[in-house]
């Protein structure tokens, strides 16, 4: 169930999305000798009625609000040199999407941290080929996912994110999109299980192994490592 009130961190009201400042080509005139005018950043009505996020707004939100985020992941590097580098972004986007989707059990930012460890070892510029296109960045968002996140006629009912392939290597944008996608995976897992999926089951769905849990030893092995790390972050 989404919380359709405007999130206080958003720049635009519901039904509108942020358009960054950009150049527009116009006819050459005395006022515009080079034929280009600057369009100031503004909110634009969204005819699809989806809430849409673009890079500029995602950066604005992180810059303005993430220093005071309520719940941060544990400051434990999990043995990786860059393990704590993204804690603020993890905390911020987890809180944002928890506010938007209002799940019965809020997503714990520690789970995002262990997912990043599993997907990329906290390497921002990493990519891997996969069955569903290239997987990019911290949370290894695939090309197929990138397209779905943008598609106004696709499987997402709302809260789309429009980013370029290159933008997925930006840790802030990658996490904004990846965590939003995880919420969709939780929805799909719940549908599959015919009950509210736990977040660990949502992560299994994210990794494509939900249906294999308890039946396939190597899938269980992957999840076991995740659970051990999560236990470590959950322990005071």
């Amino acid at each position: 169930m989404t919380n359709k009130k405007q999130h206080p961190w958003r720049k635009c009201p519901i039904g509108e999305h942020w358009v960054r400042e950009h150049e527009r080509k116009i006819g050459v005139s005395e006022k515009n000798l080079d034929g280009v005018t600057i369009v100031e950043a503004h909110c634009r009505k969204n005819p699809s009625h989806h809430e849409i996020f673009v890079a500029d707004e995602l950066h604005e939100i992180a810059k303005k609000y993430f220093k005071n985020v309520k719940t941060m992941p544990k400051a434990d590097k999990l043995g990786y040199p860059h393990g704590n580098d993204f804690d603020e972004l993890i905390g911020g986007w987890t809180q944002f999407w928890n506010d938007i989707f209002n799940p019965k059990e809020p997503l714990d930012p520690n789970l995002i941290k262990v997912l990043i460890a599993s997907e990329s070892s906290f390497d921002v510029n990493i990519s891997a080929n996969s069955t569903i296109g290239k997987a990019r960045g911290l949370i290894q968002v695939t090309e197929q996912t990138r397209k779905i996140l943008t598609d106004q006629d696709g499987e997402l009912k709302d809260f789309l994110i429009t980013l370029s392939k290159k933008e997925f290597y930006d840790p802030n944008l990658n996490l904004a999109a990846g965590i939003r996608w995880l919420f969709h995976k939780q929805y799909l897992a719940s549908h599959r299980l015919k009950r509210e999926a736990t977040w660990m089951e949502a992560i299994a769905e994210y990794k494509g192994i939900l249906s294999q849990l308890g039946k396939v030893k190597r899938s269980d092995e992957i999840m076991q490592k995740l659970k051990e790390r999560y236990k470590r972050l959950s322990t005071k």
């Binding site: 510029n125 990493i126 080929n129």
Partner: peptide
């Protein structure tokens, strides 16, 4: 390698050491 740059010498430690 699993990752595209996984065979690069600077990725030797697979993320465990500063890259």
């Amino acid at each position: 390698a699993y990752f595209d740059t996984g065979c690069d010498p600077e990725k030797y430690w697979g993320g465990l050491f500063p890259q």
